[in-house]
Structure formats: C-alpha cells, structure tokens
C-alpha cells in the first residue's frame, strides 16, 4: 500500500488526527513524550486540571468494549477541561460502512470537536478521519488488528521513564503478534525511536506472514529471544484464541511462552516487564512476574493518562488552528 499518512497532518504539517504511528517522525514522537512528561510531572505532584480544551466536546466512540482504555481517555479529557461523552455502540448495529458514516455525521451535527474511536475492523479510524469535517480530530483507540497508537506511545513513555535512551535497547515482544494491533504500533514506534533491536517471540501460528518485514527479529524460543533484552513486553492472549487451530491448550502455551521468573532470567538483570493489560495470570504471565519487582504494568496504566492528554491537546490545537 502506498502512503496515506498525509491524512494525519494539517496542511501546515501539524498532527491533526492520531491514527497510526506509521509515518510519524522521531522528533514528533519525542515531542509527544515530552509534552506527556510535562503533564505527568505536574499530575504526580497534585491532580490538576488544565484549561487547554475548555469548551471542547469529545466523544469516546467505542464500537468494541474496553473499560481501561476508555476510562483513561475519559480521565485525560476531563483533566484537559473538555466535555466528554461516552458512547458504546454494539458493532452489530453498525456492521455496514453506511451506518458507521451516518453515526459519525449525526454526531458531527452536534458540533463535536474530537472523536476517540475504537472499532473491531482494521482501517475504521482512517475511514472516519477521511469523512469528518476539517475541524474535527480523530484519535484511534484501536482498530481491528491494525493499530493502537496511544497504547504504543504510553509504552514508549514507560520505557523512556525507566531506560532513558532508546538507542542501546533490545526489546522483546512475546505473544499473539498476528492479531495484535498493539504489537504493530509498538514495533513501529520502537523502530522510529531507534532501538537496537526488536525481538518477537511466538509460535508460527501467532505470527503474520513476512513478519520480519515489520522490522523485527523472529524467535520461536523464549530463552533465545530474551537473551540480553532490556524490555519484555507481554501481549494479551485473547480467550477465543487459547484453544483450537492456533494453539493446543492454555497450559501448553504457558509452558512454552508464558513469562515466568525462570524464563525472565535470560533477559538482562534490570529488564522491565510490560503488559498492555488486562493480564491473564497463568496464561501469558506468572503472577510472581506480574506483581514482581521488574513489572511496570501498573505504571503503564497511570502514564496512559498523561500520554493521552498530550496527544489530545496536540491534535486539538492543530485541528483548531485550521478553523
């Protein structure tokens, strides 16, 4: 596919929609992390509201369930003083593009400034961005198996907090890469930020075709893949994929790919363990690891608010400047 990344920017080159990490520059990703840092450091002292989006209306448009992501978007918008509306729409009612577009146009007619969209089909956020009015921003909160760019940015934020410099880092991602929008966005962000290597560890059934083309090194064996690694990112294994044609059983998966203290020994001593949540204890990760010293899983959740504040304020400013 040829580039369509222009859609994310205003004619002045400002980030207006946040749909995918692909095509964003290292300096832009760094700017997002820096802005997030400023929100985070203030918030860590005292929870404070910023007036940046006062008078703006944001809709969290979730065609797919998610408590955590929606809550952090909700909190981020509230802390930026925006008015927030949460809409959960069952996918079945809008399985046709026509209906999706009708939904968007109906909401637009109510003078909405930003859509935060989650949808089960790859490309849904792009589709909406292509059809909204010029002064409306769209933020992708996860589309099908394509992208989850805000999750990737909060993961980058977490890595930077703990490891400072990206360039010497080896990062391992373990789990269902094939179906994971999180993994795709993480891999893009890590490569743009210039890490030394991205290792992906999974059985062939959970890897996409020509996986290496994503800019990764593939390992089928956890011990080999974890060697000398600074950051271990676990992916959630969806319930419906735990048994059947992709994997024989949960327990076999845990044996081969579940992150235990024993397997973690192959990574660097000071390696951190991340997980986008919600975690399946005893399936992809052992409780000792999830709750252990090296786990930064709960930090990721709290950083998620600052990162989403950064992205919302930056895109809204760009969209507003076009009016």
């Amino acid at each position: 596919m040829t580039n369509d990344q222009g859609i994310q920017f205003t004619s002045e080159g400002k980030l207006k929609h946040f749909l995918t990490i692909e095509g964003l520059s290292k300096s832009l990703l760094t700017e997002i992390l820096d802005v997030a840092e400023s929100f985070a450091s203030v918030s860590e002292q005292q929870v404070k509201k910023f007036p940046l989006l006062r008078g703006k209306t944001i809709i969290n448009l979730f065609f797919e369930n998610s408590t955590r992501t929606r809550t952090t978007f909700d909190l981020a918008a509230t802390r930026l003083s925006a008015d927030v509306l949460n809409m959960d729409i069952s996918t079945s009612a809008t399985s046709k593009g026509e209906t999706l577009l009708d939904t968007i146009h109906n909401l637009e007619a109510m003078h909405i400034d930003m859509f935060v969209v989650r949808h089960s089909v790859s490309g849904a956020a792009h589709f909406i961005a292509r059809h909204v009015a010029p002064n409306v921003s769209v933020i992708n909160a996860g589309d099908g198996q394509h992208a989850h760019p805000t999750q990737a940015m909060l993961d980058m934020f977490t890595i930077r907090r703990f490891k400072q410099d990206f360039s010497p880092l080896k990062v391992a991602i373990i789990g269902d890469i094939l179906h994971s929008r999180v993994a795709r966005s993480q891999i893009q962000a890590l490569n743009i930020l210039g890490v030394a290597a991205v290792h992906v560890i999974a059985p062939k059934t959970l890897l996409p075709a020509q996986a290496e083309s994503l800019g990764i090194k593939v390992f089928y064996d956890v011990k080999q893949g974890l060697e000398d690694v600074d950051v271990v990112i676990m992916l959630r294994l969806q319930k419906e994929r735990m048994t059947g044609a992709l994997l024989p059983t949960e327990s076999e998966y845990y044996k081969c790919y579940g992150l235990t203290e024993e397997k973690l020994k192959f990574a660097k001593q000071d390696a951190i363990v991340m997980h986008p949540g919600p975690i399946n204890r005893g399936v992809e990760i052992a409780s000792e690891v999830a709750d252990g010293m090296r786990s930064v899983i709960l930090k990721q959740v709290s950083y998620g608010i600052a990162v989403r504040m950064a992205i919302m304020s930056m895109t809204m400013q760009a969209a507003g400047s076009r009016e």
Binding site: M1, E22, S122, G123, D143, G144, Q145, H146, A147, R181, R184, P208, A209, Q210, A211, S213, L214
Partner: peptide, 10 residues
C-alpha cells in the same frame, strides 16, 4: 504478505 501484515488486514 508484507502489506496485509503491516496494516493488520485479514
């Protein structure tokens, strides 16, 4: 192939 992999398309 690589394109479907990149864009997460079935």
């Amino acid at each position: 192939g690589a394109v479907a992999t990149r864009y997460g398309l079935p």
